[in-house]
Design a protein around this nucleic acid. Structure first.
Ligand SMILES: [Mn+2]
Ligand SMILES: [Mn+2]
Ligand SMILES: [Zn+2]
Ligand SMILES: [Zn+2]
Lengths: 138, 138
DNA sequence: CTCTATAATGAAAACGATTTTCAGTAAAGA
DNA sequence: TCTTTACTGAAAATCGTTTTCATTATAGAG
């Protein structure tokens, strides 16, 4: 299970395992859409009611630092997090329910070469993100 | 000049022309990189020292609403604005000096069709943004 | 299993960015 | 020139996030 992996990773990096952390990790690891710190807080309090919002922020910070989660940029805001992609992948988001999927195999080489030639830029990175409706929401 | 166009657009939408607004518009219209509200404030105060930060926020809001400027998402934050693209264009940003360029002619149709087929999503929109080093910064 | 060092906790306070309130000012049209 | 009311900046309020701090509990040593 993903939550177990993350907890083990935290431990291996010298962080302690606590009930608060476990609650946060379990919520985020199971999420099928990006969650804001406040959404994580609300959902995790169901498992562990003593949880403080501060600990949510602190735990998300550590998970991001270990590249286990990543921030998602959206028209409505850029504070939400989702499980990190592995390797070179991009996001596909449902505009209705928020479901997040990863995809890979984008071949932008020709495009990037052409832009580099036209502009004189040395292109180092690209952000590609798709928005649409998932099967359920169409 | 771009600033004139924007001021005319504001006027045509029933907004009044004031010295404060002129100062803000002139700074943003001439910018070659994305500026945060505070950066606009600092630069515009050189032209009009009585300017208040609140008016910067209010003016940016109106310019965005009229699609004359657009918000730029970057790893360091998502509060900065730049002149809006016309038609279907994407951004190319210098990771060193922040220079912003637009490009068009991205052909993602094949990619989008393949992702749609694989995932079952109806793809409606895409965000593509390139990062690199401009000619001067290489 | 007990003890100890200290990482982690939550409450409260602080903070920084943005928004709202408000009384005075000035743009624009009559 | 006069009148209406949109716009202004200062101050206060608000919102999300971070810091501070005294207390608690994890993890490793003994
Ligand atoms: Mn790619
Ligand atoms: Mn495109
Ligand atoms: Zn959906
Ligand atoms: Zn540059």
């Amino acid at each position: 299970m993903l939550a177990e992996t993350w907890l083990k990773a935290l431990q291996e990096h010298g962080y302690r395992l606590t009930d608060a952390r476990r609650a946060v990790v379990e919520i985020v690891a199971l999420a099928w859409r990006a969650l804001t710190p406040l959404e994580v807080f609300d959902q995790a309090r169901a498992k562990y009611p003593e949880l403080g919002l501060v600990t949510v922020y602190r735990t998300l910070e550590k998970l991001e630092e270990l590249h286990l989660i990543q921030r998602v940029h959206q028209p409505e805001g850029c504070q939400a997090f989702i499980t990190a992609s592995q390797g070179h992948q991009h996001l596909l988001l449902c505009q209705n329910c928020g479901q997040v999927m990863f995809f890979e195999g984008d071949d932008l080489d020709t495009l990037l070469a052409s832009i580099a030639a036209k502009t004189g830029y040395a292109i180092r990175e690209h952000w590609l993100q798709l928005f649409g409706l998932c099967r359920n929401c169409q």
